[in-house]
Every structure is written in C-alpha cells, then in structure tokens.
Nucleic acid binder design. Structure first.
Length: 708
RNA sequence: GGCGCGGUAGCUCAGCUGGUUAGAGCGCAGGAUUCAUAAUCCUGAGGUCGGCAGUUCAAGCCUGCCUCGCGCUACCA
C-alpha cells in the first residue's frame, strides 16, 4: 500500500530558458500526476530545481564575460518564473548551487567511497600547461574528425552533431589559452557499475529487488525498458568525478581530491534529495520517509535523453548508498518536434515558454491553459510528437471552445435564464433522456453513476501515466454533457414539462461541478475560474476523492438552492492573425543568420607553402564497412596512387565519385582510420548545413600537379 | 556498423497475453437543431495496418529479411 509519493521532474540545466519540448517532456506530465494525487488526498512531494554546474555554464560565462554564478542566477530565476506562470506546482524548486546540496552530494561520495564502490583509475586527458589545469571536454576545440568542422568541442561537434571525445579532435586547442594542450595523466573515481549488473538486470527485467516484487515492469513504457535492457547487458565502470572548476568539490579530506569535482551523475540527481531536505526544513517536516520508507513510491519524470541516467546509474547509486527506495517507474517521454523540425536551441527553432507567456497574454484568453492543453494533447508519451500552430489553433477552437467551454456556457446561461442562477430542486423520480445514447431513457441517479464512472476511468488513466488519455476523458465528459443537453432539449421541454427540465438542468450543473474538480490537474487556471463561477471554494487536497465518494453515495456536487454567477467565456476562438504572427516569428528565426565561420589567424606565405596540394582522380571507391560516413578511395596522382579514407559517405555514393577530379593534401601525415591507413586528405567545401562538395580542378586537367 | 524504440484512415494518434466485418478525435460530405462563443447533436465516406517472405486453423499484433524516422553507441583527420 503506497503511503506517500516522491515525484521528481528532471532538473533543467540553468544555461538557457525553457521551451515547449521541455514542458511536454517532463513538467506537464509530472504536474498532472501530482495534482491528481493531491486531489485524491495522497501524501505527495513534488521536487524540481536548477542543475547549475558543469562546463557548459563556465564556458557560457566566459563568453559573456561574467561569473558562472551570474549565468545560473539569471536562468534559475527565469526558469522558476516560467514554471510558476505555467502553473507547474512544485513543492520546492531548488538549486544545486545551494550549500545543502553540496553537502548532500559530498556525503554520498564519502559514503560510497567507504563502502568500496569506487575504483580509482588513471588515464590521459588534455591539460593546459599555461593555465595549469585539466581541460573539460567543452574547453577543447579542434577539427571534427567526422565532418572536418574546425570548431568542434571535445564532447560534441555542433556542426554535425556527433558525439566526440577530446582525443579524437584533430589539432586540439585549449579554449582557455589558445595553446595546444598536452596529454597528462589524471586520476578519477569510477563507480563499479559492472558489480551491480546482476541485480540491475533482474530489477529492470522482472521488477524483483532483493527477492521481492518491487514494481511491475509491464507498467513501464516500452522505449524505457528497451533502452535499459540494451544497457544492462554491458555495464562498465563510469567516472564519477571530473577535472572541473564549477561544481561540487570532491570532499577535501580525501587524498587526491584537489581540483576534482563530482560529475553530473553524482551531482544532479542527488539534487532531488537535497531539495527534499530543504523542503523539509522549510516546512518542519522529515525528509527521510520520502526517500527511505518502503511505503514511498518514487517516480522520476524525464525526457528520453535521461533514461539510462535515471534507470541505471542513479538506482545503482541509491542502492549502493543503502537504505534508499528505488524508482517505481520512470515514465520518460520522447521528444516533441516543432512544425516538422526538431526543436533546436542553437538554431532558435523553438517556442520559448517565457516568450509565449508574454506574446499571448493579451491575444489568447486563458493562454496558459490553452498551451497546457495543446502540449498535453500532443505529449510525446510513446513516440516523438509534433507541435504546430495550426493544430494549436484547431485544438483551442474545437475542443476547448466548442466542446468544453461551450458546454459550461450553455448550462450556466440556461440556469440563469430559467432559475435566476439558482441550482434547481427537482423530482428525482422523473425520467430523462440518457446522455450516452439518443432516445434512451435514464434517471438522475443513473446519470450520476455514469458521471462517477467517467471520473474513475479518468483517474485510472492518470495513474497509469496516460495523460493524453486522461485529457481525452476530460473532454469526453464535456461531450457527454453536450449530448445530454441535446437529447433532452431543455429549451423545448421548458414549454411543456418544466419539472423534467429541473432534473435535466440540475444534473447538467453537477457535470459542470465535477469538471471544476477533475479539470484541475490539466487546466488549473480554468478550474479555479470555474470554481468562482459556481461559487465553490478553492480546491483542496482530497477534493476529488470526496467528490467520488459523494457521487457514489448519490450525493450532488452542487447543492440545490445554491446560486451561481453570470457566465463568462472560459476560452474564445483564436483568430488566424494571432496564429500567423507566431508562425511568422518562427519562420523569421529560420532565415535569420547563416553563421559564417570567423576568419582564422593570419598566416605567412611560408605557412601556406608547407601544404602540398595535388590534383588527382578517384580511381576506386568503396564504402568502409561498419562506418556510416567513410568512403575508402584510391586516388591517382599520376606518379603514384594513394589510399584515402574520407568522411563523405553521407553525401556521395561510392560509385558516383569514381572518375571525379579532386585536390588532395598530399603531405599530410598518414593516419589509420577504422583499420585502414589514410594517405592524404581530399579537399571539400562545406556550407552552413554541413553539406560537402568536392573542390575540383577543371575536368581533364592532369593528375599530380601542384595547387597554389 | 551495433543496439533500442517507432512507421495503423487526409492529419494527430488508440489498438490488452495473435481470434468475429481494424478504432477514436480532427478534417471532409449530408442531415437535425438554436440554449450556446456559426458553437452543438446525428449519419456517412475514407485504411494493401511501411514492404516482402514465413510460422499458425487464424497476424496490425509472432519470426526473418528489406526500407524509412528518432534515440543511444562505435579506435569514424
């Protein structure tokens, strides 16, 4: 029996604002879940906060010429505000830069160290001698080995998107000093994940933990299980520390800790725990039951990029630390696309939360709930999904205005018209038309049961993390109401049978009353407004549970004789021009800037003459096995033939490059690629999209001649 | 290249452990209605369930191969 729930939402990284992909990924889903649990009277804590450490923030700070603290302060404040404005109801929004977090993370480190969970390993990493420090991946730039982009970072090439390790870069340069870094030995602590492989495998596959049933893996999403299974087969020790300057220190009393910081694995997720501690302090509560009591259900809401982190590494850390509960479920969402393209921060292809809030606050009625509705409706629960402004408008106009708000409006208007806004008394023995089938006969009690059943079904969907299903069920309740009115036609009946109309209208009001409760997890602002219209008090924890009990007992939501207010349009149609503005804004960001690479430092003619460039012709070409981007070429230089491995396979098929005339950098040191010695480099031009094209001499020009 | 997850009506998606004529919403067509924000309600048309082969009495659901999308991963100038 679950006594309490600990719900976490992925910690946003504090180096940029939130966009709709974030919201649809982890925050709206968790918010619905938590709001629902609260309405059901559960003990639940909802945790989030900013992840404020790491190299990306330091780099950003250097670029802006400010201290890292300034960056994280700025974005923490902005992100926190966006969440608040969107009604995301965290119990605490914390920060990993807080002292309580540093202490908590360090305790974990010390604890794991004592328990022998770490092994120390030494390897070679780049070191900037002029700065006397090791270089984090992001501090190293160089030429991308894949696409030859010459400003790739040590962990990733932003041009071609491929993940890199610093030692792969060609001509690595320290971004701190501009010097060429040297490889130097460094020692780090590795968590021996391999030792945890057995129980992790069993836990993931069967849900068994320490011989007991911990959770039902069938309740986990396919893509989450699949991703986990592909990892548990081959678990390697993972470094838990890094040579960084901005983060949580490895505890000072540990030998060799100097200059070492905890890596994100041992930093960010522990932020959930330190945030809980802070919340407990603020509210005079005990944090431990939420993380250590067997009757606590831990649920992590994340995006799919975080699956391995939350399903393998963090559980291993918790289990190794001892005494902690493991997640009951990790309902990770996939990604949301925007107007047919991936959301991209660097390309500014996104709808930003704070911008939407500002842009639409006057032009769209209840703009926050509209956005929530559309994002939930298109939530990427099982596969990548799509957000388009056209769909946004359509959903608002059909579902929210046409079905939901319109039903409520009809009921309120009729009640005001017929009964001066007072919930009518009625004769429960009179028969009315049923809401589910045209021409069916039903009764007040029967319809109340039906409502009860619908609410229960909606709850089950939410409990199963099917939030789109829950949202659909919500709208269907309004649709049921519309049908109910349509089948009973009170506007006609009122002329011949006013007593039956009272039954109909009272029941319709009960449906509206129920909507004011059950809509709250999805559309909190509308829910509050609706409560006002109905003269009902603000919702409190347990109110949905009470509502269900009441309905089951045949009790009404709105007591007869109580009065309601004049109707107000809860949602209104969104005109085309408002949508067009948003589309135009997005399109403008698309054409915006073709970012040309900055010119390199000046060189001398002598520097240039070091290059031996030769004309050549490709004689043979074949795809490299087991490589996506490589072609193995044989190039004729007239006086000799060279084997060259070239990363152009994504743009040219082997057969179409044969016979091509090319320019070859002929005196480049040979290098082995995928086991083949590459003797030179073919010159290619590359545009902003990373597309490659040959730089060729005029056709028919001979081979082996110099280029200068 | 390896691994994982997906590819179902024009659009967005449901389809439990394989089992009667494959579903919903939107859009579209026709009709009803006016209490309501031209909203609502009813009816209807629309699908080789990515492709090919196989297992089975029976496959959208199982197996193999192929193809496309997304993600992870790989000693990939």
């Amino acid at each position: 029996m679950t006594k309490r729930y600990t719900v976490t939402a992925a910690l946003p990284y504090a180096n940029g604002p939130l966009h709709i992909g974030h919201l649809a990924g982890a925050y709206l889903s968790s918010d619905i879940y938590v709001r629902y649990l609260r309405l059901m009277g559960k003990d639940v804590i909802y945790i989030c906060g900013s992840d404020e450490h790491g190299a990306a923030i330091t780099i950003r700070a250097k670029k802006d010429g400010v201290k890292p603290k300034e960056i994280v302060d700025r974005y923490n404040a902005q992100i926190k505000q966006t969440f608040e404005d969107l009604g995301v109801s965290f119990d605490i929004y914390h920060r990993t830069s807080e002292p309580i977090h540093h202490e908590t993370a360090q305790e974990f480190f010390t604890n794991l160290l004592k328990k022998g969970e770490f092994t120390q390993k030494t390897n070679e990493q780049y070191y900037d001698e002029s700065q006397n420090q090791f270089l984090a991946d992001r501090y190293i730039k160089g030429t991308c080995p894949k696409c030859s982009y010459d400003a790739a970072y040590g962990d990733q090439c932003e041009n071609c998107g491929s993940a890199l390790s610093p030692t792969e870069l060609i001509n690595p340069v320290s971004t701190l000093s501009g010097n060429t870094p040297v490889l130097k030995e460094t020692t780090h602590w590795y968590l021996s994940l391999d030792k945890h492989a057995d129980w992790l495998g069993e836990w993931i596959n069967t849900g068994q933990l320490d011989g007991k049933q911990h959770h039902d893996p069938k309740e986990w999403k396919n893509h989450v299980l699949g991703q986990c299974r592909s990892w548990v087969g081959d678990l390697q020790p993972r470094a838990m520390t890094r040579d960084l300057e901005w983060g949580v220190d490895v505890p000072q009393d540990i030998p060799g800790s100097e200059g070492k910081k905890l890596y994100v694995w041992l930093d960010a997720p522990i932020g959930y725990i330190s945030a809980t501690k802070q919340w407990a302090l603020d509210n005079n509560k005990d944090w431990e039951p939420y993380w250590k009591d067997k009757d606590s259900k831990l649920v992590h809401f994340i995006g799919k990029d975080n699956i391995v982190f939350h399903c393998i590494i963090f559980p291993a850390i918790l289990k190794a630390a001892g005494g902690y509960v493991l997640p009951d479920n990790v309902p990770a969402n996939q990604f949301m696309n925007l107007e047919g393209d991936k959301i991209s921060t660097s390309r500014n292809w996104a709808v930003w939360g704070h911008e939407y809030l500002e842009d639409c606050k006057d032009s769209i009625v209840n703009h926050v709930d509209v956005l929530r509705y559309v994002l939930i409706k298109n939530m990427p629960e099982l596969k990548d999904s799509e957000f388009t402004w056209g769909n946004f408008q359509e959903l608002n106009n059909t579902d929210l205005v046409g079905k939901f708000a319109n039903f409520i409006n009809r009921v309120l208007v009729l009640t005001n018209k017929y009964y001066e806004g007072v919930v009518p008394d009625f004769d429960a023995s009179l028969s009315i038309a049923g809401s589910e089938e045209e021409g069916s006969t039903s009764s007040y009690q029967e319809e109340l049961n039906r409502l009860h059943h619908r609410l229960e079904e909606l709850g089950k969907l939410v409990e199963a993390y099917d939030f789109r299903g829950g949202l659909k069920a919500l709208i269907e309740i309004a649709s049921m109401g519309n049908q109910f009115l349509q089948f009973n036609e009170p506007w006609k009946l009122v002329k011949t049978d006013p007593e039956t109309v009272k039954v109909v209208m009272n029941l319709a009001l009960q449906i509206v009353g129920a909507l004011s409760v059950v809509s709250q997890p999805f559309l909190p602002f509308i829910s509050a407004k609706l409560r006002d219209l109905l003269n009902l008090s603000a919702l409190e924890n347990g109110d949905l549970e009470h509502l269900l009990d009441d309905l089951k007992a045949g009790k009404a939501v709105l007591p007869k004789g109580s009065s309601i207010n004049k109707p107000e349009h809860l949602f209104t149609r969104i005109p085309d021009d408002v949508i067009q503005q948003q589309i135009d804004k997005l399109e403008a960001s698309k054409v915006q800037k073709v970012s040309y690479e900055p010119l390199k430092d000046e060189i001398t003619f002598d520097d240039f003459t070091k290059l031996d460039l030769r004309t050549g012709t490709i004689l043979e070409a074949e795809k490299m096995p087991k490589a996506k981007k490589l072609l193995k070429l044989k190039v004729d230089l007239g006086f000799e033939q060279r084997t060259v491995v070239s990363g152009i396979a994504e743009f040219y098929k082997a057969e179409e490059v044969i016979g091509k005339q090319v320019v070859l950098l002929a005196n480049l040191a040979p290098r082995k690629l995928r086991g083949v010695m590459s003797e030179g480099m073919i010159l290619m031009a590359e545009n902003a999209q990373g597309e490659l094209v040959f730089v060729s001499p005029q056709d028919g020009f001979g081979n082996g001649f110099t280029v200068r």
